[in-house]
Simulated scan of single mutants.
Amino acid sequence: MAALASYAALSFDVYGTLIDWESGMVTGLRPLTDQLDREISDDAVLEMHARHESAAQAQTPARNYSALLATVYRRCAEELGLPADWEACERYGASVPDWPTFEDSADALAYLKQHYRMIVLSNVDNRSFAGSARRLGIAWDAVFTAEDIGSYKPSQRNFDYLLAGIERMGLARSALLHTAESMFHDHVPARANGLDNAWIYRRHQKQGFGATMDPGQLADTTFRFNSLRDMAEAHERGDL
């Protein structure tokens, strides 16, 4: 296994890895879930969201993420048997820039930026990412969004775009470490494309896959950390 310090660049998933999208989703769906006359767990809400988001991304791969989320909100309302006017759907779609960062993300990114070229590969639109980027605080060396690519991970198109992008940057595939939480969106396709990977396992104390679909089989991982801080500290110690 290569050492962390041997890579020249990190490519990042953002939502679920750097941004606490599950908290953002649960909060954003409260206008629906607060109307229920029964209890529904956060994980049940997230799993419902994952089903509808994944279906929408497969059916309308070129659709802007904020617009796609508006439809996801509507589909969730229908599944729960609740009314939802389109204005409420659009408010949810516009909420992505308000989703919080994980508390360790900004500091860990600032440290890693000193040692790597930093690349975004995210299932998001550019306007929404701009709001999240302000929270994350670093200057990215490249930003590849679903809006740019016209499809959503785990589509091969997104990884083709990433690989073409790093080639333009003069980086070999072996110099890139793909860094992400989602097995479904990131690690399974990253490994299929011959990329080394770091699993930031944010859900290590929870059951299931939350806001991502079950990948069926877990991908092999080059590194595993429970937070981005753990990864930064491992690099600083030089123990991997």
Rank of each mutant, 00 (worst) to 15 (best):
L4K: 06
A5Y: 12
A5W: 12
A8Q: 15
A8I: 03
A8N: 13
A9D: 02
L10H: 03
D13E: 07
V14C: 11
Y15Q: 12
D20V: 08
V26A: 13
T27Q: 14
P31I: 06
T33Y: 05
R38Q: 13
D43V: 12
A44Q: 11
L46K: 05
E47Q: 14
H49T: 12
H52Y: 11
T60H: 14
A62H: 13
S66L: 03
Y73A: 11
R74P: 04
R74Y: 12
R75D: 15
C76S: 10
E78C: 07
G81M: 07
G81N: 08
A84H: 02
G93N: 04
A94N: 13
W99T: 06
P100A: 10
P100Y: 11
D104A: 02
S105F: 06
S105R: 07
A108T: 09
Q114E: 15
H115C: 08
I119H: 02
N123W: 01
V124Y: 00
D125G: 08
R127I: 13
R127A: 15
S128E: 00
G131K: 00
G137Q: 06
I138H: 03
A139V: 10
D141L: 02
V143R: 02
F144T: 08
F144C: 10
I149M: 01
R157Y: 00
N158H: 06
N158Y: 00
N158F: 00
L163H: 04
A172E: 13
A172Y: 03
S174E: 15
L176E: 01
H178E: 00
A180V: 01
S182V: 01
S182A: 08
M183N: 10
H187N: 01
A192W: 00
A198S: 09
W199L: 12
R203N: 12
H204I: 08
Q205V: 12
G208S: 05
G208Y: 06
Q217R: 15
L218Y: 13
A219D: 09
D220I: 10
N226Y: 12
E233Q: 14
H235K: 07
